[in-house]
C-alpha cells in the first residue's frame, strides 16, 4: 500500500512539474516581442525603472519595454528584485 501511495505521489508531482515547465515556456513565448531590449540596455535603466515602480508612476513605453524584458529574462529579474529589496527600506 505504501508503495502504491509513493507511486501515486511521484506521478502527481511529475505531472505538476511537467505542467509548470510547459506553462513557463508558454508564458515566455506569449511575452516574446519582435523587438526587445537586451540585458545591457535594461541594466543601464534598472535603477530608474525601480524608482518609478516604487513611486507607483505610470510606466512610459521605455519602462514597459524593461518590464517586458524582466518577464523573459531570469537573470535580470533576479537582479531587479534584489535591487528593489535593497531600495525599499532605504
Amino acid at each position: 500500500m505504501k508503495r502504491i501511495i509513493g507511486w501515486l505521489k511521484n506521478l502527481f508531482s511529475s505531472s505538476k512539474r511537467h505542467e509548470s515547465l510547459f506553462g513557463k515556456m508558454i508564458y515566455m513565448l506569449a511575452s516574446t516581442r519582435e523587438e526587445e531590449l537586451n540585458c545591457a540596455q535594461v541594466y543601464a535603466l534598472l535603477e530608474q525603472f525601480s524608482e518609478a515602480v516604487l513611486r507607483h508612476e505610470p510606466l512610459t513605453d521605455l519602462m514597459m519595454s524593461i518590464e517586458q524584458h524582466l518577464n523573459v529574462c531570469p537573470d535580470c529579474r533576479e537582479e531587479y528584485e534584489t535591487l528593489l529589496a535593497m531600495m525599499k527600506a532605504a
Binding site: 535603477e47 524608482e51 537582479e79 535593497m86 532605504a90
Partner: peptide, 13 residues
C-alpha cells in the same frame, strides 16, 4: 537619472 545610491546598489547587485 536616478538616485546616486541606487546606482551604487545596482553595481553591488
Amino acid at each position: 537619472k536616478g538616485q546616486f545610491t541606487n546606482w551604487v546598489y545596482k553595481i553591488a547587485v
